[in-house]
């Protein structure tokens, strides 16, 4: 994997999940995220968690990477926790100290919300960690295609995403270069208040914008020279195609949906 640059969060590994059709993974994640809003009973929560844990294991992605995504929601979790503790309605007081009143209902509400968020983040992490951005783009194009009838340019949106993915590393490298050049001239990006730091960014953004316009112009010409046109449907080197594993996966997703609905009432 030495020279292959990983954009986004893709974690290369050889697992069933990695090999699945990106559309199936999209459907699976979407179904999961929708269904966890139906989880009610303890058993249904347990079922959802076990299902997701199984997916994590199957994906062969280190759990550490899965948990990384959770860091970003830590703040939200703490915040809602405090809110719930202070303001949640409920009679069953478990702890009282002056104006602080913690109720059982509040705690339960918080637990549910936290569980939902955690499962949601992990399930979408599984999608992005096992699917290359290119495959994600292909799947997105597929799902947007029906909207082409009402004028949504699905093919062009996918092309825009492809180009964005291609140029993210190039522009990052360029930013770094410009920053180094400015630093060598005595620019200071690390100290000072917010305003000062924002001001220090101007000499980076201006050259970056200028060079990006030049790139865009060049790229447009290169694309035209290679017969790019928007008035016809382009073909694809790799057509998305369902394999047997994809059908099995869909059965699995259906099983999960059914299971959750049943367990909800226990």
């Amino acid at each position: 994997m030495n020279e292959r640059l990983i954009i986004g969060q893709y974690y290369p590994a050889n697992s069933v999940l990695h090999r699945l059709d990106p559309r199936v993974k999209f459907i699976g994640s979407f179904a999961y995220i929708t269904m966890i809003f139906f989880a009610e009973s303890l058993l249904s929560w347990f079922f959802a968690a076990v299902y997701l844990f199984a997916m994590v294991i199957i994906s062969k992605v280190p759990v550490r990477l899965m948990l990384k995504g959770l860091k970003s929601i830590l703040f939200i979790l703490i915040f809602t926790c405090i809110l719930n503790i202070f303001f949640a309605p409920g009679e069953t007081v478990v702890f009282e100290f002056y104006f602080i009143k913690i109720t059982l209902e509040g705690l339960l509400l918080f637990a549910k919300m936290a569980a939902r968020l955690v499962l949601l983040i992990i399930s979408s992490s599984i999608l992005t960690l096992t699917t290359t951005p290119l495959a994600l783009t292909d799947a997105l194009e597929f799902f947007l295609r029906p909207f082409a009838k009402i004028g949504l340019p699905a093919q062009e949106i996918a092309m825009m995403m492809t180009i964005a993915l291609r140029f993210i590393p190039t522009l990052m490298e360029e930013t770094e270069k410009i920053m180094k050049a400015q630093k060598a001239r005595g620019a200071d990006f690390e100290t000072g208040g917010l305003v000062r730091r924002a001001k220090a960014l101007v000499p980076i953004l201006v050259p970056l914008f200028i060079s990006s316009f030049k790139r865009a112009e060049d790229l447009a010409m290169a694309m035209e020279a290679r017969c790019y046109r928007t008035d016809i449907k382009r073909s694809k080197m790799k057509e998305l195609k369902f394999q047997r594993a994809d059908y099995s996966a869909l059965v699995c997703v259906t099983g999960f949906i059914a299971g959750l609905i049943i367990f909800r009432y226990f």
Binding site: L134, T162, K214, D218, L219, M223, A225
Partner: peptide
Amino acid sequence: FQNPDNQIIASV
């Protein structure tokens, strides 16, 4: 074209 970076369209 001249600039190799500005004529490659895909990331693979």
